[in-house]
Amino acid sequence: MRLRTLLLKEWEEARRIKMVIYGVVFLPLFMLGLAVLMAWQARDLPLEAQAVMLNTSLLYFVILPIMIPLSIAVYAIVGEKEQGTLEPLLATPLTETELFMGKGLAAVIPALIITWLTYGAFLAVTWALLGAIPEGVLSAPWLASVFLLSPLLAMFAVLVTVLVSSRTTDPRAAYQFSSLALLPALVPLIVYSTQLTAVSLTLVAVEAAVLIALNAVILYVAVRLFRRESILTRWR
């Protein structure tokens, strides 16, 4: 109940922030456009070459679950610090877990919904343009990336942003540092998108395993950072 109250408040605030709207609305539209463009250009290529071009399209769908939570989480944390609202908030019966979950879910839930909506729109648009959904776009590695990797990536993005944001009072700085810290998560996919074969389930599985391990470690640190004492004495 308190968690729900906090979530609704986060979204009510977020929808009034330009940077967040940019991340949540324009970025997905932009990514959708690029992904469709790739599919369009690949339309007449032989299957092998088509798969390689579509790797790049897939990359856009794994960037989204990283970039969307980043913009929401930065403001959800730095915004509280800027406005000096943490102390009154912490003086309520809200538990530390609820606060942490509230901030995290406020970023992860929209990220996943929007990523999946964008993917759905991609399927619909390519089908409308090309008369058929391109081969490979509904394959196991694609579906595993969109539905399994996204939550892990979104969680990773939130956790990293939480750590970074607790150390700064400047949303822009938090944004930039977090983006940098998030880059490594994409390296395997970026490398892969330049390879000449289609994305494979093995790659997705390895990426997922690495993300789970990273998430566990950062979660351990972040939960400690979210104790009342730490928030009031160690966040700067």
């Binding site: 308190r2 408040k9 605030e13 009034r16 000096g84 609202t85 102390e87 309520t92 019966p93």
Partner: peptide
């Protein structure tokens, strides 16, 4: 410092805390 949510209305600010206190 008053620590208000500047982007929320006066009403939303107060209601939030009433709800958090259940």
């Amino acid at each position: 410092s008053p620590g208000l949510y500047k982007r929320l209305s006066v009403w939303q600010n107060l209601l939030l805390f009433a709800q958090l206190h259940e």
